[in-house]
Amino acid sequence: MNYIIIEGLAFALPLFIIAIGGIFSERSGVTNLALEGFQGFGAFAGAAAVMAISGGNLAGIETPMFITAMVFALLGGMVFSMLHALLCIPFKANQVISGVVINILATALTAFLTSQFNTVLFGKPTNKFVLGICEKFTVPFISEVPVLGAFFTDVYYYQPIIIAAALVASYVLYKSRFGLRLRACGDNPHAVDAAGISVSKLRFIAVMISGALSGLGGMCFAYSISASFSPTIYSGYGFLAIAALIFGNWKIGPTLLACLLFGFARSGGYKLAQVLGLTSAFADIIMILPYVLTLLLLMFFSSTNRAPRALGEIYDKGKR
């Protein structure tokens, strides 16, 4: 049970922060299929910064390097997301197209840069930065409470960061003036424009926020599941986050539930395979659990699903 909760959370929270990024962008009216690319590029930026600063020797300085990675992942994701914002907003490109293109570009660019970087820095053209796994901590006393304690055992350092970021994000989205305008942008951009606020600027910022948060999420995956940065980071976390946020009806709270569902179903599946002593081939069957569950739940709940009204539409001032 503890294993399920610990590993489930470790997977669900990075997914959640990527999904929050997606929510910011989509609630402002910009379809964001580029989350996959953002998280990958963010992870690349963080990992590259760590490699450049530490020179590849991480022993003894894991924690400061971890913080460096987080900061650079945030910035890297944000800078890269400006490309999507640029294409979608001033250049009026189709947002779905732009998203797909950004993903392809991110994969190609990071693979290329990683091998260039490794050649220059270490003289060997590999496409991998080995980072190791982020440190964990256990909260004393509370962790001894049965079941509930598991939420406080072996917590990756990034988990509290994500929770804090998520709280700030939901405050901004639902309680601040900026958030209100952002949400209005996704439903009725003309009203926002009439109130004298620049729709383009707001959407641009929203996409940048989504890039920053996705970058953070990607970095967390690089620091936990793969313990390195390599092209395997593009294994669909971003798409899973999109599924979670649509499942969560573009709201932060329900999206968290969707992410937890993915996380727990995934770790639960692994545990089940372990307990039953199944071979890795059977584990494949169990791995479909989160996806089947999602589809089934969607059958019941998605009749009330409603996307932001102006989602995917290029804002045209003259249009009525």
């Binding site: 299929l33 899973l240 649509i246 479909i288 996806y291 999602t294 998605s302 996307a307």
Partner: peptide, 13 residues
């Protein structure tokens, strides 16, 4: 069900 979500899920399944 949004076709993007269902096809991503079915891809994995």
């Amino acid at each position: 069900i949004n076709e993007v979500v269902s096809s991503i899920m079915l891809n994995y399944i």
